[in-house]
Simulated scan of single mutants.
Amino acid sequence: MVKYKRIVLKISGEALAGDAGFGIQPPVIAKIAKEIKAVHDLGVQIAIVCGGGNMWRGEAGAAMGIERAQADYIGMLGTVMNGLALQDALEQIDVPTRVQTSIEMRQIAEPYIRRKAVRHLEKGRVVIFSAGTGNPYFSTDTTAALRAAEINADVILMGKNGVDGVYSADPAKDATAVKYDHLTHMDIIAKGLNVMDTTASSLSMDNDIPLVVFNMNEPGNIERVVKGENVGTTIEGGES
């Protein structure tokens, strides 16, 4: 029995790089694909948004002197590369997958069409949303929140690289940091917690979409979250 029947899984680019910290590591992606397959086999409809931080960060590019919008477009292309790599890993283990991009590149992926994405999900295909929203200045967190609202997802699962939830401070730097089990979207905004940007938090709150932040590196965690087990930090509701 599953708690969430249609999910948006947000995977950071760093999670695809593993210990290397940069680039695409096929063995790491293969492990993630197996975790996704286990959830797919439960009959859950899965949409995925990949970050691009393992390839490029628009803000960092802008800091080096590249015009910000241009730097962001470079980052969007990085998310497409991640999406294609994940698609390959999923299809190698017989999980039907479609990549849809917000920037058209028809030779390698479908353009994003909301109704077509929903139809793919209904047919049991995993849909990977790439190239962000198609606009500069918007993060892939915002993409996840936007797509979740558009496809009427039950939840956004935010897989973190080695972090098992939301803390009051960085646990690697502050020994007194406290892990939260439950928060509201307003808590995230008001406390300035580093979970997702304020645009994404506001979108999730306005559309009443819960968010679960959990450790992607722990085997079986995606399945546990989907089944409703108390894993990571659950964020839902507006006011505290």
Score class of each variant (00 low, 15 high):
Pro171Ile: 03
Ile209Gln: 00
Arg57Val: 02
Ala148Cys: 00
Asp187Ser: 02
Val212His: 09
Arg115Thr: 13
Ile222Gln: 04
Ile128Tyr: 00
Ala148Ser: 08
Leu183Ile: 08
Gln92Ala: 14
Gln70Tyr: 11
Met158Val: 10
Ala200Arg: 03
Ser12Gly: 15
Gly43Met: 00
Thr143Tyr: 01
Gln107Lys: 13
Pro219Ile: 10
Gly162Met: 11
Thr142Met: 07
Asp19Ala: 15
Asn230Glu: 14
Ala20Thr: 10
Ala71Lys: 04
Asp197Leu: 08
Gly165Arg: 07
Ala153Arg: 01
Thr198Cys: 05
Gly237Glu: 06
Thr143Glu: 06
Val95Ala: 09
Gly61Pro: 11
Ala63Ser: 15
Ile48Val: 15
Ser12Arg: 07
Gln70Trp: 08
Ala47Gly: 15
Asn221Thr: 12
Ala172Tyr: 12
Gly23Arg: 05
Ala175Met: 00
Met81Tyr: 07
Leu90Glu: 01
Ile128Val: 09
Gly43Ser: 03
Ala131Asp: 03
Lys116Ala: 14
Leu203Gly: 02
Ala169Trp: 05
Phe22Ser: 13
Ser12Asn: 09
Glu150Tyr: 03
Leu77Phe: 14
Asn217Trp: 01
His185Pro: 04
Trp56Ile: 10
Thr140His: 06
Lys10His: 03
Val178Ser: 09
Ile103Gly: 00
Phe214Cys: 06
Thr233Trp: 00
Ile222Ser: 01
Gly132Glu: 06
Trp56Lys: 09
Val49Arg: 01
Asn152Met: 00
Ser130Trp: 05
Val163Ala: 08
Ala153Tyr: 04
Met105Asp: 12
Gln45Phe: 03
Val226His: 06
Ala17Asn: 04
Gly58Ser: 11
Thr97Cys: 15
Leu157Met: 11
Ile74Val: 15
Lys191Ala: 12
Ile66Trp: 08
Asp187Leu: 04
Thr101Asn: 15
Lys173His: 13
Asp72Ala: 08
Ile24Trp: 09
Tyr112Gly: 08
Ser102Phe: 01
Thr199Phe: 10
Arg68Asp: 00
Ile32Asp: 01
Gly65Arg: 02
Lys10Ser: 02
Val163Pro: 02
Tyr4Val: 06
Ser130Ile: 06
Phe138Pro: 00
Met64His: 13
Asp187Glu: 08
Lys173Met: 11
Glu239Gly: 12
Gly21Ile: 08
Asp181Val: 09
Gly124Val: 10
Val195Leu: 04
Arg224Gln: 12
Lys10Ala: 11
Ala175Phe: 00
Arg57Cys: 06
Gly61Asn: 07
Gly78Gln: 09
Asp206Gly: 01
Thr199Gln: 14
Ile74Asp: 09
Val127Phe: 10
Phe22Ala: 13
Gly51Trp: 03
Ala17His: 07
Glu104Gly: 09
Ile103Asn: 05
Thr199Met: 13
Met216Ile: 15
Ile222Cys: 03
Arg119Asn: 14
Ala30Thr: 13
Gly13Ser: 03
Val118Arg: 05
Lys227Leu: 14
Gly52Gln: 07
Ile46Gly: 01
Tyr137Leu: 14
Leu193Glu: 07
Leu146Lys: 08
Asp206Gln: 13
Asp94Ala: 13
Val28Ser: 00
Gln107Thr: 14
Glu59Thr: 15
Arg114Trp: 05
Glu59Trp: 09
Ala144Asn: 00
Gly13Lys: 05
Arg106Met: 10
Ile93Phe: 09
Leu211Tyr: 03
Ser139Ile: 01
Ala30His: 11
Asn221Ser: 14
Lys191Tyr: 14
Gly18Gln: 04
